[in-house]
Design a protein around this nucleic acid. Structure first.
Lengths: 255, 255
DNA sequence: CGTTCCCTTGAGTAGTTTCAATACTTGTGG
DNA sequence: CCACAAGTATTGAAACTACTCAAGGGAACG
Protein backbone atom coordinates (compact mmCIF):
# COMPACT_ATOMS: atom_id res chain seq x y z
CA UNK A 1 0.00 0.00 0.00
CA UNK A 2 1.15 3.53 -0.81
CA UNK A 3 0.95 4.62 2.80
CA UNK A 4 3.52 2.11 4.01
CA UNK A 5 5.96 3.06 1.28
CA UNK A 6 5.56 6.74 2.06
CA UNK A 7 6.20 6.11 5.75
CA UNK A 8 9.30 4.11 4.97
CA UNK A 9 10.67 6.87 2.79
CA UNK A 10 9.65 9.70 5.15
CA UNK A 11 9.48 8.11 8.59
CA UNK A 12 8.84 11.35 10.47
CA UNK A 13 6.62 13.29 8.07
CA UNK A 14 5.12 10.61 5.84
CA UNK A 15 1.62 11.22 7.17
CA UNK A 16 1.73 14.98 6.76
CA UNK A 17 -1.21 16.09 4.56
CA UNK A 18 -1.76 12.49 3.50
CA UNK A 19 -5.11 12.33 1.75
CA UNK A 20 -5.08 16.10 1.28
CA UNK A 21 -2.42 18.09 -0.56
CA UNK A 22 0.39 15.61 -0.12
CA UNK A 23 0.08 14.57 -3.74
CA UNK A 24 0.67 18.21 -4.72
CA UNK A 25 4.07 18.10 -3.02
CA UNK A 26 7.07 17.18 -5.14
CA UNK A 27 9.59 14.60 -4.01
CA UNK A 28 12.00 17.44 -3.32
CA UNK A 29 9.46 19.20 -1.12
CA UNK A 30 8.71 16.03 0.82
CA UNK A 31 12.40 15.47 1.34
CA UNK A 32 12.90 19.07 2.50
CA UNK A 33 10.14 18.74 5.08
CA UNK A 34 11.51 15.42 6.29
CA UNK A 35 14.98 16.97 6.60
CA UNK A 36 13.61 19.96 8.50
CA UNK A 37 12.26 17.80 11.25
CA UNK A 38 15.22 17.16 13.43
CA UNK A 39 15.17 16.11 17.05
CA UNK A 40 12.61 13.54 18.01
CA UNK A 41 11.09 13.63 21.45
CA UNK A 42 8.79 11.35 23.37
CA UNK A 43 6.27 12.86 25.75
CA UNK A 44 4.03 11.27 28.32
CA UNK A 45 0.29 11.84 28.40
CA UNK A 46 -0.65 15.25 29.75
CA UNK A 47 2.68 16.90 29.01
CA UNK A 48 2.66 20.16 27.09
CA UNK A 49 4.01 20.29 23.55
CA UNK A 50 3.57 24.05 23.58
CA UNK A 51 2.39 26.32 26.32
CA UNK A 52 0.29 29.39 25.70
CA UNK A 53 2.28 32.60 25.57
CA UNK A 54 5.69 30.95 25.29
CA UNK A 55 7.98 32.31 22.60
CA UNK A 56 8.29 29.59 19.97
CA UNK A 57 11.46 29.15 17.93
CA UNK A 58 10.53 25.74 16.58
CA UNK A 59 7.39 23.95 15.45
CA UNK A 60 6.30 20.43 16.23
CA UNK A 61 4.93 17.65 14.07
CA UNK A 62 3.01 14.75 15.59
CA UNK A 63 4.70 11.58 14.43
CA UNK A 64 2.77 9.22 16.63
CA UNK A 65 -0.04 9.76 19.10
CA UNK A 66 -2.59 12.49 19.66
CA UNK A 67 -2.76 15.97 21.12
CA UNK A 68 -5.42 18.47 22.16
CA UNK A 69 -5.51 22.25 21.96
CA UNK A 70 -6.68 23.73 25.25
CA UNK A 71 -7.54 27.18 26.52
CA UNK A 72 -7.76 27.92 30.22
CA UNK A 73 -10.66 29.92 31.53
CA UNK A 74 -11.80 30.28 35.12
CA UNK A 75 -9.04 27.92 36.16
CA UNK A 76 -10.12 25.01 33.98
CA UNK A 77 -8.69 23.76 30.70
CA UNK A 78 -11.12 23.43 27.84
CA UNK A 79 -10.41 21.51 24.66
CA UNK A 80 -10.86 23.56 21.50
CA UNK A 81 -9.19 21.24 19.02
CA UNK A 82 -7.65 17.83 18.57
CA UNK A 83 -4.72 16.69 16.44
CA UNK A 84 -3.89 13.31 14.95
CA UNK A 85 -0.65 11.76 13.67
CA UNK A 86 0.83 13.67 10.75
CA UNK A 87 -0.48 17.02 11.94
CA UNK A 88 2.01 19.86 12.13
CA UNK A 89 0.43 20.89 15.41
CA UNK A 90 1.98 24.28 16.02
CA UNK A 91 3.12 25.28 12.59
CA UNK A 92 1.10 28.46 13.07
CA UNK A 93 3.62 29.46 15.74
CA UNK A 94 6.00 30.07 12.84
CA UNK A 95 3.95 33.15 11.92
CA UNK A 96 2.36 33.92 15.30
CA UNK A 97 5.50 33.45 17.42
CA UNK A 98 3.38 33.02 20.54
CA UNK A 99 0.27 30.90 20.74
CA UNK A 100 -3.03 31.82 22.34
CA UNK A 101 -3.54 28.23 23.54
CA UNK A 102 -1.75 25.14 24.84
CA UNK A 103 -1.06 21.90 23.01
CA UNK A 104 -1.13 18.90 25.33
CA UNK A 105 -0.24 15.28 24.65
CA UNK A 106 -3.25 12.96 24.70
CA UNK A 107 -1.68 9.67 25.58
CA UNK A 108 2.03 9.12 24.92
CA UNK A 109 3.31 10.86 21.81
CA UNK A 110 6.34 10.94 19.56
CA UNK A 111 7.03 14.32 18.00
CA UNK A 112 9.62 15.95 15.80
CA UNK A 113 10.79 19.55 15.92
CA UNK A 114 11.52 21.96 13.06
CA UNK A 115 13.56 25.06 13.87
CA UNK A 116 11.93 28.24 12.60
CA UNK A 117 15.24 29.53 11.28
CA UNK A 118 15.57 26.39 9.12
CA UNK A 119 11.94 26.59 8.12
CA UNK A 120 12.38 30.18 7.05
CA UNK A 121 15.44 29.41 4.96
CA UNK A 122 13.62 26.62 3.14
CA UNK A 123 10.34 28.46 2.63
CA UNK A 124 11.99 31.61 1.33
CA UNK A 125 13.51 29.42 -1.35
CA UNK A 126 10.44 27.27 -2.05
CA UNK A 127 7.33 29.44 -2.24
CA UNK A 128 5.15 26.59 -3.41
CA UNK A 129 6.04 24.59 -0.33
CA UNK A 130 5.30 27.68 1.75
CA UNK A 131 1.80 27.73 0.30
CA UNK A 132 1.35 24.05 1.07
CA UNK A 133 2.28 24.68 4.70
CA UNK A 134 -0.01 27.69 4.77
CA UNK A 135 -2.76 25.44 3.46
CA UNK A 136 -2.20 22.99 6.28
CA UNK A 137 -2.76 25.69 8.91
CA UNK A 138 -5.94 26.76 7.12
CA UNK A 139 -7.21 23.22 7.41
CA UNK A 140 -7.20 23.66 11.18
CA UNK A 141 -9.19 26.87 10.77
CA UNK A 142 -11.77 25.07 8.63
CA UNK A 143 -12.11 22.43 11.33
CA UNK A 144 -12.55 25.15 13.96
CA UNK A 145 -15.37 26.65 11.89
CA UNK A 146 -17.11 23.31 11.71
CA UNK A 147 -16.81 22.94 15.47
CA UNK A 148 -18.38 26.38 15.88
CA UNK A 149 -21.25 25.30 13.66
CA UNK A 150 -21.69 22.04 15.53
CA UNK A 151 -21.68 23.73 18.93
CA UNK A 152 -24.17 26.33 17.71
CA UNK A 153 -26.54 23.79 16.26
CA UNK A 154 -26.46 20.29 17.62
CA UNK A 155 -27.42 18.75 20.96
CA UNK A 156 -24.82 16.78 22.90
CA UNK A 157 -25.35 13.31 21.43
CA UNK A 158 -25.03 14.66 17.90
CA UNK A 159 -21.98 16.68 18.86
CA UNK A 160 -20.28 13.55 20.09
CA UNK A 161 -21.29 11.71 16.93
CA UNK A 162 -19.86 14.57 14.88
CA UNK A 163 -16.55 14.38 16.70
CA UNK A 164 -16.45 10.65 16.01
CA UNK A 165 -17.22 11.10 12.32
CA UNK A 166 -14.56 13.77 11.97
CA UNK A 167 -11.87 11.78 13.75
CA UNK A 168 -12.69 8.65 11.80
CA UNK A 169 -12.23 10.49 8.50
CA UNK A 170 -9.08 12.24 9.59
CA UNK A 171 -7.53 9.03 10.85
CA UNK A 172 -8.53 7.24 7.71
CA UNK A 173 -6.75 9.84 5.60
CA UNK A 174 -3.49 9.19 7.41
CA UNK A 175 -3.88 5.42 7.30
CA UNK A 176 -5.17 4.87 10.84
CA UNK A 177 -8.82 4.13 10.21
CA UNK A 178 -10.36 0.71 10.70
CA UNK A 179 -13.31 -0.79 8.85
CA UNK A 180 -15.65 -0.44 11.82
CA UNK A 181 -14.14 2.45 13.78
CA UNK A 182 -10.87 3.70 15.19
CA UNK A 183 -8.83 3.93 18.39
CA UNK A 184 -7.98 7.09 20.28
CA UNK A 185 -7.07 7.53 23.96
CA UNK A 186 -9.97 9.81 24.85
CA UNK A 187 -11.98 9.61 28.06
CA UNK A 188 -15.58 10.74 28.42
CA UNK A 189 -14.27 13.69 30.39
CA UNK A 190 -12.28 14.93 27.41
CA UNK A 191 -15.09 14.18 24.99
CA UNK A 192 -17.38 16.23 27.21
CA UNK A 193 -14.94 19.12 27.16
CA UNK A 194 -14.81 19.06 23.36
CA UNK A 195 -18.59 18.99 23.13
CA UNK A 196 -19.26 21.70 25.69
CA UNK A 197 -21.08 19.31 28.00
CA UNK A 198 -20.53 17.97 31.49
CA UNK A 199 -19.04 14.50 31.88
CA UNK A 200 -22.28 13.29 33.41
CA UNK A 201 -24.24 14.44 30.42
CA UNK A 202 -21.70 12.98 28.01
CA UNK A 203 -22.15 9.62 29.67
CA UNK A 204 -25.87 9.84 28.97
CA UNK A 205 -25.29 11.06 25.42
CA UNK A 206 -23.02 8.10 24.68
CA UNK A 207 -25.56 5.74 26.12
CA UNK A 208 -28.17 7.15 23.77
CA UNK A 209 -25.80 6.54 20.83
CA UNK A 210 -25.46 2.96 22.02
CA UNK A 211 -29.20 2.58 22.50
CA UNK A 212 -29.80 3.87 18.99
CA UNK A 213 -27.36 1.29 17.68
CA UNK A 214 -25.22 4.01 16.13
CA UNK A 215 -21.91 3.74 17.95
CA UNK A 216 -20.19 2.38 21.01
CA UNK A 217 -17.25 4.19 22.55
CA UNK A 218 -15.41 2.23 25.19
CA UNK A 219 -11.80 2.05 26.35
CA UNK A 220 -10.67 4.53 23.74
CA UNK A 221 -12.14 2.65 20.83
CA UNK A 222 -15.08 3.54 18.64
CA UNK A 223 -17.15 0.74 17.19
CA UNK A 224 -19.72 1.65 14.60
CA UNK A 225 -21.75 -0.94 12.70
CA UNK A 226 -23.20 1.53 10.16
CA UNK A 227 -21.05 4.50 9.30
CA UNK A 228 -23.54 6.08 6.91
CA UNK A 229 -26.20 6.01 9.63
CA UNK A 230 -23.87 7.69 12.12
CA UNK A 231 -22.96 10.40 9.61
CA UNK A 232 -26.61 10.95 8.76
CA UNK A 233 -27.51 11.21 12.42
CA UNK A 234 -25.25 14.24 13.00
CA UNK A 235 -25.57 15.66 9.48
CA UNK A 236 -21.86 15.15 8.90
CA UNK A 237 -20.52 16.60 5.66
CA UNK A 238 -16.79 15.85 5.35
CA UNK A 239 -16.00 18.43 2.67
CA UNK A 240 -14.51 20.87 5.20
CA UNK A 241 -11.66 18.41 5.71
CA UNK A 242 -10.55 19.01 2.10
CA UNK A 243 -10.05 15.34 1.46
CA UNK A 244 -10.86 13.79 -1.93
CA UNK A 245 -14.11 15.43 -3.01
CA UNK A 246 -15.79 18.60 -4.06
CA UNK A 247 -13.54 21.18 -2.41
CA UNK A 248 -10.35 19.29 -3.05
CA UNK A 249 -7.92 20.74 -5.56
CA UNK A 250 -6.00 17.95 -7.24
CA UNK A 251 -2.23 18.05 -7.56
CA UNK A 252 -2.05 19.75 -10.93
CA UNK A 253 -4.48 22.52 -10.06
CA UNK A 254 -2.68 23.58 -6.92
CA UNK A 255 0.22 25.81 -7.71
CA UNK B 1 -3.99 60.92 14.25
CA UNK B 2 -1.95 58.12 12.70
CA UNK B 3 -5.01 56.26 11.46
CA UNK B 4 -6.21 59.11 9.25
CA UNK B 5 -2.80 59.54 7.69
CA UNK B 6 -2.53 55.82 7.00
CA UNK B 7 -5.95 55.80 5.35
CA UNK B 8 -5.03 58.75 3.18
CA UNK B 9 -1.86 57.07 2.05
CA UNK B 10 -3.45 53.63 1.59
CA UNK B 11 -7.13 54.30 0.99
CA UNK B 12 -8.05 50.69 0.25
CA UNK B 13 -5.83 48.76 2.63
CA UNK B 14 -4.98 51.28 5.34
CA UNK B 15 -6.90 49.39 7.99
CA UNK B 16 -5.37 46.01 7.19
CA UNK B 17 -3.75 44.58 10.36
CA UNK B 18 -3.98 47.98 12.00
CA UNK B 19 -3.29 47.52 15.68
CA UNK B 20 -1.72 44.13 14.99
CA UNK B 21 1.24 43.49 12.72
CA UNK B 22 0.81 46.52 10.51
CA UNK B 23 3.74 48.21 12.20
CA UNK B 24 5.89 45.23 11.21
CA UNK B 25 5.18 45.94 7.54
CA UNK B 26 7.62 48.16 5.67
CA UNK B 27 6.44 51.08 3.55
CA UNK B 28 7.26 49.00 0.49
CA UNK B 29 5.13 46.14 1.71
CA UNK B 30 2.21 48.42 2.48
CA UNK B 31 2.48 49.92 -0.97
CA UNK B 32 2.62 46.49 -2.58
CA UNK B 33 -0.54 45.40 -0.82
CA UNK B 34 -2.31 48.61 -1.75
CA UNK B 35 -1.26 48.14 -5.37
CA UNK B 36 -2.45 44.54 -5.38
CA UNK B 37 -5.99 45.54 -4.57
CA UNK B 38 -7.43 46.55 -7.88
CA UNK B 39 -11.09 46.69 -8.76
CA UNK B 40 -13.40 48.13 -6.16
CA UNK B 41 -16.93 46.83 -5.90
CA UNK B 42 -19.96 47.83 -3.89
CA UNK B 43 -22.34 45.15 -2.69
CA UNK B 44 -25.76 45.39 -1.10
CA UNK B 45 -26.60 43.72 2.19
CA UNK B 46 -27.05 39.99 1.85
CA UNK B 47 -25.03 39.61 -1.33
CA UNK B 48 -22.29 37.00 -1.40
CA UNK B 49 -18.66 38.06 -1.52
CA UNK B 50 -17.67 34.42 -1.95
CA UNK B 51 -19.79 31.37 -2.24
CA UNK B 52 -18.84 27.99 -0.79
CA UNK B 53 -17.25 25.66 -3.29
CA UNK B 54 -16.63 28.27 -5.98
CA UNK B 55 -13.16 28.28 -7.51
CA UNK B 56 -11.47 31.48 -6.35
CA UNK B 57 -8.93 33.29 -8.49
CA UNK B 58 -8.94 36.49 -6.45
CA UNK B 59 -9.23 37.44 -2.80
CA UNK B 60 -11.28 40.22 -1.29
CA UNK B 61 -10.48 42.87 1.28
CA UNK B 62 -13.24 44.65 3.19
CA UNK B 63 -12.71 48.36 2.72
CA UNK B 64 -15.93 49.50 4.30
CA UNK B 65 -18.76 47.60 5.95
CA UNK B 66 -19.08 44.17 7.52
CA UNK B 67 -19.42 40.56 6.45
CA UNK B 68 -20.30 37.21 8.01
CA UNK B 69 -19.02 33.73 7.32
CA UNK B 70 -21.88 31.29 7.01
CA UNK B 71 -22.24 27.54 6.63
CA UNK B 72 -25.47 25.96 5.49
CA UNK B 73 -26.81 22.95 7.30
CA UNK B 74 -30.28 21.49 7.11
CA UNK B 75 -31.25 24.28 4.73
CA UNK B 76 -30.39 27.14 7.06
CA UNK B 77 -27.39 29.46 7.08
CA UNK B 78 -25.48 29.67 10.32
CA UNK B 79 -22.96 32.35 11.12
CA UNK B 80 -19.54 31.00 12.13
CA UNK B 81 -17.54 34.23 11.89
CA UNK B 82 -17.75 37.94 11.38
CA UNK B 83 -15.41 40.35 9.60
CA UNK B 84 -14.83 44.05 10.07
CA UNK B 85 -13.30 46.76 7.84
CA UNK B 86 -9.68 46.07 7.01
CA UNK B 87 -10.10 42.30 7.09
CA UNK B 88 -8.77 40.37 4.13
CA UNK B 89 -11.89 38.23 4.28
CA UNK B 90 -11.04 35.40 1.92
CA UNK B 91 -7.30 35.56 1.76
CA UNK B 92 -7.31 31.89 2.77
CA UNK B 93 -8.81 31.13 -0.64
CA UNK B 94 -5.35 31.92 -2.01
CA UNK B 95 -4.11 28.65 -0.52
CA UNK B 96 -7.39 26.72 -0.30
CA UNK B 97 -8.69 27.62 -3.78
CA UNK B 98 -12.23 26.71 -2.77
CA UNK B 99 -13.83 27.69 0.50
CA UNK B 100 -15.87 25.51 2.80
CA UNK B 101 -18.17 28.42 3.69
CA UNK B 102 -19.85 31.55 2.30
CA UNK B 103 -18.95 35.14 2.97
CA UNK B 104 -22.00 37.40 2.93
CA UNK B 105 -22.25 41.19 3.14
CA UNK B 106 -23.74 42.43 6.39
CA UNK B 107 -25.15 45.76 5.38
CA UNK B 108 -23.77 47.54 2.32
CA UNK B 109 -20.05 46.99 1.77
CA UNK B 110 -17.21 48.31 -0.33
CA UNK B 111 -14.58 45.72 -1.19
CA UNK B 112 -11.41 45.47 -3.23
CA UNK B 113 -10.12 42.45 -5.10
CA UNK B 114 -6.59 41.07 -5.38
CA UNK B 115 -5.87 38.61 -8.18
CA UNK B 116 -4.18 35.45 -6.98
CA UNK B 117 -1.74 35.55 -9.89
CA UNK B 118 -0.61 39.02 -8.80
CA UNK B 119 -0.56 37.97 -5.18
CA UNK B 120 1.62 35.02 -6.02
CA UNK B 121 4.08 37.09 -7.97
CA UNK B 122 4.48 39.55 -5.11
CA UNK B 123 4.64 36.96 -2.33
CA UNK B 124 7.22 34.83 -4.13
CA UNK B 125 9.40 37.90 -4.16
CA UNK B 126 8.64 39.14 -0.63
CA UNK B 127 8.68 36.21 1.80
CA UNK B 128 8.35 38.48 4.81
CA UNK B 129 5.14 39.92 3.44
CA UNK B 130 3.97 36.38 2.75
CA UNK B 131 4.43 35.60 6.43
CA UNK B 132 2.49 38.71 7.41
CA UNK B 133 -0.42 37.61 5.23
CA UNK B 134 -0.16 34.11 6.65
CA UNK B 135 -0.31 35.67 10.10
CA UNK B 136 -3.52 37.48 9.21
CA UNK B 137 -5.27 34.24 8.28
CA UNK B 138 -4.11 32.69 11.54
CA UNK B 139 -5.76 35.52 13.40
CA UNK B 140 -9.08 34.29 12.07
CA UNK B 141 -8.25 30.81 13.32
CA UNK B 142 -7.48 32.18 16.79
CA UNK B 143 -10.84 33.93 16.81
CA UNK B 144 -12.55 30.70 15.76
CA UNK B 145 -10.91 28.92 18.70
CA UNK B 146 -12.19 31.54 21.10
CA UNK B 147 -15.67 31.14 19.67
CA UNK B 148 -15.43 27.39 20.24
CA UNK B 149 -14.43 28.03 23.84
CA UNK B 150 -17.24 30.51 24.35
CA UNK B 151 -19.85 28.19 22.87
CA UNK B 152 -18.58 25.32 24.98
CA UNK B 153 -18.61 27.28 28.19
CA UNK B 154 -20.89 30.25 28.47
CA UNK B 155 -24.68 30.66 28.62
CA UNK B 156 -26.40 32.82 26.01
CA UNK B 157 -26.21 36.22 27.74
CA UNK B 158 -22.47 35.85 28.29
CA UNK B 159 -21.98 34.66 24.73
CA UNK B 160 -23.63 37.81 23.45
CA UNK B 161 -21.52 39.91 25.79
CA UNK B 162 -18.43 38.14 24.52
CA UNK B 163 -19.32 38.89 20.91
CA UNK B 164 -19.78 42.54 21.86
CA UNK B 165 -16.45 42.70 23.67
CA UNK B 166 -14.65 41.13 20.75
CA UNK B 167 -16.21 43.37 18.13
CA UNK B 168 -15.56 46.45 20.21
CA UNK B 169 -11.84 45.61 20.46
CA UNK B 170 -11.53 44.69 16.81
CA UNK B 171 -13.28 47.87 15.67
CA UNK B 172 -11.17 49.92 18.01
CA UNK B 173 -8.00 48.50 16.49
CA UNK B 174 -9.04 49.68 13.04
CA UNK B 175 -10.16 53.08 14.26
CA UNK B 176 -13.90 52.42 14.42
CA UNK B 177 -14.48 52.16 18.15
CA UNK B 178 -16.35 54.77 20.14
CA UNK B 179 -15.86 55.68 23.80
CA UNK B 180 -19.07 54.02 24.90
CA UNK B 181 -19.63 51.36 22.25
CA UNK B 182 -19.73 50.83 18.51
CA UNK B 183 -22.08 50.53 15.55
CA UNK B 184 -22.66 47.42 13.46
CA UNK B 185 -25.69 46.46 11.34
CA UNK B 186 -26.55 43.29 13.25
CA UNK B 187 -30.06 42.14 14.10
CA UNK B 188 -30.97 39.96 17.05
CA UNK B 189 -31.54 37.15 14.58
CA UNK B 190 -27.95 37.27 13.41
CA UNK B 191 -26.65 37.67 16.95
CA UNK B 192 -28.64 34.59 17.90
CA UNK B 193 -27.12 32.66 15.01
CA UNK B 194 -23.60 33.61 16.14
CA UNK B 195 -24.35 32.58 19.71
CA UNK B 196 -26.06 29.31 18.90
CA UNK B 197 -29.35 30.44 20.40
CA UNK B 198 -32.84 31.06 19.10
CA UNK B 199 -33.88 34.64 18.32
CA UNK B 200 -36.47 34.46 21.08
CA UNK B 201 -33.86 33.52 23.60
CA UNK B 202 -31.45 36.15 22.34
CA UNK B 203 -34.11 38.75 22.95
CA UNK B 204 -34.31 37.61 26.56
CA UNK B 205 -30.54 37.45 26.89
CA UNK B 206 -30.18 41.03 25.67
CA UNK B 207 -32.86 42.15 28.08
CA UNK B 208 -30.91 40.58 30.92
CA UNK B 209 -27.80 42.51 29.82
CA UNK B 210 -29.89 45.68 29.91
CA UNK B 211 -31.38 44.80 33.28
CA UNK B 212 -27.91 44.19 34.67
CA UNK B 213 -26.87 47.63 33.42
CA UNK B 214 -24.09 46.08 31.34
CA UNK B 215 -25.02 46.91 27.76
CA UNK B 216 -27.83 48.02 25.50
CA UNK B 217 -27.97 46.85 21.91
CA UNK B 218 -30.52 48.63 19.77
CA UNK B 219 -30.71 49.61 16.12
CA UNK B 220 -27.29 48.23 15.37
CA UNK B 221 -25.54 50.19 18.07
CA UNK B 222 -24.00 48.98 21.29
CA UNK B 223 -24.05 51.27 24.28
CA UNK B 224 -22.03 50.24 27.28
CA UNK B 225 -21.54 52.46 30.33
CA UNK B 226 -18.83 50.30 31.94
CA UNK B 227 -16.60 48.36 29.60
CA UNK B 228 -14.58 46.70 32.33
CA UNK B 229 -17.76 45.36 33.91
CA UNK B 230 -18.95 43.93 30.59
CA UNK B 231 -15.61 42.26 29.97
CA UNK B 232 -15.57 40.84 33.48
CA UNK B 233 -19.09 39.52 33.08
CA UNK B 234 -18.14 37.26 30.16
CA UNK B 235 -14.56 36.59 31.28
CA UNK B 236 -13.25 38.30 28.16
CA UNK B 237 -9.50 38.08 27.66
CA UNK B 238 -8.50 39.95 24.49
CA UNK B 239 -5.08 38.38 24.07
CA UNK B 240 -6.28 36.01 21.34
CA UNK B 241 -6.76 39.03 19.09
CA UNK B 242 -2.99 39.60 19.11
CA UNK B 243 -3.38 43.30 19.66
CA UNK B 244 -0.93 45.25 21.81
CA UNK B 245 -0.29 43.00 24.81
CA UNK B 246 1.23 39.80 26.02
CA UNK B 247 1.08 37.69 22.85
CA UNK B 248 1.92 40.54 20.52
CA UNK B 249 5.27 40.48 18.79
CA UNK B 250 6.51 43.99 18.22
CA UNK B 251 7.80 45.07 14.84
CA UNK B 252 11.45 44.28 15.40
CA UNK B 253 10.84 40.79 16.73
CA UNK B 254 8.70 39.67 13.83
CA UNK B 255 10.80 38.65 10.91
C1' DC C 1 -6.26 -4.54 49.23
C1' DG C 2 -7.09 -0.11 49.04
C1' DT C 3 -6.50 4.25 46.32
C1' DT C 4 -7.66 6.63 42.36
C1' DC C 5 -9.72 7.59 38.22
C1' DC C 6 -13.47 6.73 35.22
C1' DC C 7 -18.11 5.62 34.29
C1' DT C 8 -23.07 5.20 35.45
C1' DT C 9 -27.62 6.25 37.43
C1' DG C 10 -31.17 9.06 40.00
C1' DA C 11 -33.50 13.25 41.43
C1' DG C 12 -34.11 18.10 41.46
C1' DT C 13 -32.91 22.55 39.24
C1' DA C 14 -31.49 25.82 35.69
C1' DG C 15 -31.11 27.20 30.95
C1' DT C 16 -33.09 26.92 26.42
C1' DT C 17 -36.57 25.82 22.92
C1' DT C 18 -41.01 25.78 20.93
C1' DC C 19 -45.37 27.57 19.98
C1' DA C 20 -48.29 31.34 20.03
C1' DA C 21 -49.69 35.95 20.35
C1' DT C 22 -48.70 40.85 20.21
C1' DA C 23 -46.25 45.08 19.14
C1' DC C 24 -42.87 48.01 16.73
C1' DT C 25 -40.46 49.46 12.52
C1' DT C 26 -39.85 50.52 7.76
C1' DG C 27 -41.01 50.85 3.18
C1' DT C 28 -44.65 50.63 -0.38
C1' DG C 29 -48.70 51.59 -2.92
C1' DG C 30 -53.27 53.47 -2.93
C1' DC D 1 -51.53 60.69 4.28
C1' DC D 2 -53.10 56.32 5.48
C1' DA D 3 -53.20 51.23 5.03
C1' DC D 4 -50.74 47.33 4.58
C1' DA D 5 -47.04 43.96 4.34
C1' DA D 6 -42.70 42.28 5.85
C1' DG D 7 -39.17 42.00 8.88
C1' DT D 8 -37.85 42.58 13.70
C1' DA D 9 -38.52 42.53 18.67
C1' DT D 10 -41.00 41.24 22.97
C1' DT D 11 -43.60 38.34 26.27
C1' DG D 12 -45.90 34.08 28.29
C1' DA D 13 -46.46 29.15 29.06
C1' DA D 14 -45.22 24.37 28.46
C1' DA D 15 -41.78 21.06 27.07
C1' DC D 16 -37.27 19.67 26.61
C1' DT D 17 -32.15 19.62 27.19
C1' DA D 18 -28.48 19.98 30.14
C1' DC D 19 -26.48 20.89 34.81
C1' DT D 20 -25.67 19.99 39.69
C1' DC D 21 -25.40 17.23 43.55
C1' DA D 22 -25.05 12.77 45.28
C1' DA D 23 -24.15 8.00 45.53
C1' DG D 24 -22.31 3.73 43.89
C1' DG D 25 -19.79 0.43 40.67
C1' DG D 26 -15.83 -0.91 37.97
C1' DA D 27 -11.10 -1.17 36.30
C1' DA D 28 -6.20 -0.16 36.89
C1' DC D 29 -2.21 0.37 39.70
C1' DG D 30 0.74 0.34 43.46
Amino acid sequence: MAMAEELQRYPRTGRFLMGRLRDAMSAEERAEIEALVGVERTLASGQALVRRGALCTASTILIEGFAVRTIERAGRHHIVGIQVPGDFVDLHAFALKRLDHNVIALGPVRVGGAEHSDLRRVLDRLPHLARVLWFSTLLDAAIHREWVLTLEQLPAAKRAAHVFCELWRRLEMVGLGEPDGFAIPLTQIELASMCGATPVHMSRALRSLRDLGLATFRNGRLRCPDRAALERFCEFDPSYLYGPGELRIEGDDFS
